[in-house]
């Protein structure tokens, strides 16, 4: 019993420490973000690694998620004779939830883990210390550009995911099954609101981008500088970012759609 309480206490204290460190780290990073924008080529490089290299997985997953939505949506809707609502179902599911959330989860495991691994290995091989010794701040030169690269990539990736998903749903619904093309798009346009659905989706993915990128760079920077420590940090990045994305999604959804 005492042991249990002690473990609980230990976990709590550790957790609070971590959150405190992460917050201080975030502020240090924001303070040193000047070079990420003044020398934008640093951030462009990270946009390539976080954004461009995630494109394939985002496009392929988006297409499949959209096609599955098309099939399942049609199967359910045709029982009520409302196949015409297929466009709305596909677009609303993607824009409000699946686009931002699934894209963020994929982003965490593709780009987030890569960022953690890169920073962790740089720390383990003393590259960060070496940079610090050359009077170049590693937070400004290495960490902040990776953070901003992730933050900027995420909304674009989520938008691409949703778009490809809508096209995938259209392909299954209209081309394969034969729902009327005009009905598909007009029903969609009627039920989707620009501010309510599109903008909120972008806001969500932007928030997820902050969360995942912060966790990824922090875990890399904070890792134990050994091979084992780096691999543990990568696992933590994927697990923590996934949980964080789902929790944030719940909070954001309840504010965006239920609060009124």
């Amino acid at each position: 019993m005492i042991q249990l309480l002690r473990t609980l206490g230990h976990l709590t204290v550790d957790g609070v420490w971590q959150v405190g460190f992460a917050t201080r780290f975030l502020f240090a990073m924001l303070r040193h973000s000047g070079p990420s924008f003044a020398r934008f080529s640093l951030t462009i490089r990270e946009l390539y690694f976080s954004g461009v290299l995630s494109l394939v997985i985002i496009v392929v997953s988006g297409a499949f998620v959209g096609m599955v939505l098309g099939l399942q949506g049609y199967d359910t809707l045709q029982r009520f004779g409302s196949e015409s609502a297929l466009g709305s179902i596909v677009a609303l599911s993607l824009l409000r939830e699946l686009g931002p959330v699934v894209a963020a989860l994929l982003f965490a495991s593709r780009a987030g883990s890569a960022v953690t691994a890169e920073i962790g290995l740089m720390k383990a091989t003393e590259q960060l210390t070496a940079m610090d010794m050359m009077a170049v701040n590693p937070i400004a030169r290495v960490v902040a550009p990776r953070f901003w690269g992730g933050v900027l990539s995420m909304p674009l990736l989520a938008a691409i995911f949703s778009t490809v998903g809508v096209i995938g749903g259209w392909f299954i619904g209209v081309v394969v099954i034969g729902v009327d093309n005009g009905t598909f798009w007009s029903q969609m346009a009627n039920s989707v609101d620009f501010r309510e659905d599109v903008v909120n989706g972008v806001v969500k993915s932007f928030v997820f981008g902050w969360a995942v990128s912060l966790i990824a760079v922090f875990q890399g920077y904070d890792c134990t500088p050994t091979a084992e420590g780096v691999s543990r940090a990568i696992t933590k990045t994927v697990v923590y970012s996934s949980l964080m994305v789902l929790a944030l999604d719940f909070i954001l959804t309840s504010f965006m759609y239920i609060g009124k």
Partner: peptide, 24 residues
Amino acid sequence: LDLWVGAFVALGFAALMFLAMQVA
């Protein structure tokens, strides 16, 4: 590198435009 990133950003904004124009 610049070319790829430019294409990526253009694609992202095209997707946003598509969502705004065609979907919403």
